[in-house]
Design a protein around this nucleic acid. Structure first.
Lengths: 229, 229
DNA sequence: TATTAATAGTGTATCATTAACACTATGTCA
DNA sequence: TGACATAGTGTTAATGATACACTATTAATA
């Protein structure tokens, strides 16, 4: 690898596909652009990487600045580097995806991120740049990952019912799941702790609440345990 | 996303983990560095991304320049962006991994890439920068990918025996496989075409040669066929 | 207070897949 | 022609996946 300063450099950004789950729908958080190009268009939250921060740090900083979100599940997805992604100059973007609990975010949404809005994944508006490609890649990754890693819990509140969990998986995988088989499988992992509370909701039988045991998950993961759905 | 030219920019490179397979061993192609830092140390082939080429193009160009390899299987792996990867300045590297048929490469090795050398994955020298991390990530990816996509053929000559294929998978997965179950499974995919030739090798029964049917694979892949090992 | 509506919760039987296992076949070389 | 080295081949048992239907509990209402 030779060093060479004579060439112009690409600009480096991070973009984030933020997933949330609410009312049986998978949603994505978008920002309305204030400046050209694509002024007024919806886009992914993101921005420039500073020379003194890692890619992960940059993604978290932009997320906090533009949406008020902090301490979320965040992973690098893919780096998008086609030459004309940006109409002005060469910009390479390291895309990430994040999973957030919508319940946490709702309070902050009004304050920090007036121009941020959740859209159902099936009804996204036209997006700026190649952001539609990035969302597609993120969804594919989420669908793949959810099959063998229990990351779905990042999208649910700390206490949830098995029905809510099943609806989440059905929304992500875009497929119906058998109730009995689903419960058998997820309870079999031993990562769901039943709480003493139940969730009362309207005119029907209340449901058992569970929480996800993250400590136990970490221990089992280290032993190479398999969480394939 | 706001544009801002006032900050210094990170330099952007690509690096490639090139895998090969020979004599029952998985190998990685390394370059001996001619310049400081890490002068004389072994490193991954790679270099700067130009403003008028995609990341994929950059990786292929560097591979051709430094190792003489062309038309190889190449995929983006992960982008490494810790702040002090490079002792001189901020450098973000988009890592790729490549799979090559060693038989193809051997002829070229002497001419194009005098300072390139294959190392068994289990006996790598100390590497420059964070290249050891990159190799580890590439190996993990290869091990994961090989379970559900028939990419192993990229590492074998066009004609190969089932024993060679099994040894390859054993080398990648670092695990022994049952001969009968392995043959049953891979032949069951219907992607291996038996040739009329056999491979004579030394003092034992000659083995049936096969070739991988890439066209058939593409067709089945589009229909969502599952190639899980 | 009996009925209805709405979701929670539960078990079994069949089918498909995976895992374990050992011997015969065919060539070369001494 | 016997020894050696690798190729090639099926069956059984265990495990995991799939398909499937009814009862239980609550709130609302008649």
């Amino acid at each position: 690898m030779a060093y060479n300063y004579q060439y112009p450099r690409a600009a480096l950004t991070v973009d984030c596909v933020v997933f949330g789950f609410d009312e049986s729908e998978l949603k994505v958080l978008l920002i309305q652009r204030a400046l050209d190009p694509f002024k007024g268009k919806w886009a992914l939250p993101g921005g420039f990487v500073r020379v003194d921060e890692t890619l992960d740090d940059a993604a978290r900083r932009e997320l906090a600045e533009e949406t008020g979100l902090e301490n979320v599940f965040l992973e690098q997805l893919y780096t998008f580097g086609t030459v004309n992604r940006d109409p002005r100059e060469r910009v390479v973007s390291v895309a990430h995806y994040a999973l957030v609990k919508l319940t946490d975010h709702k309070a902050k949404a009004a304050t920090d991120a007036a121009n941020a809005q959740w859209f159902p994944i099936s009804k996204l508006p036209k997006l700026a740049f190649d952001h539609a490609d990035i969302v597609a890649a993120a969804l594919a990754r989420l669908q793949g990952k959810v099959r063998y890693q229990p990351i779905g819990f990042e999208l649910l509140p700390p206490k949830f019912t098995l029905s809510e969990l099943q609806h989440l998986y059905e929304a992500i995988l875009e497929a119906g799941l058998d109730k009995r088989n689903f419960r058998k499988k997820v309870l079999g992992f031993g990562l769901l702790m039943p709480l003493k509370e139940t969730q009362m909701a309207g005119r029907h039988r209340p449901a058992q609440l569970f929480r996800f045991d993250a400590d136990k998950y970490e221990k089992l993961k280290k032993r190479g345990f398999n969480f394939e759905l």
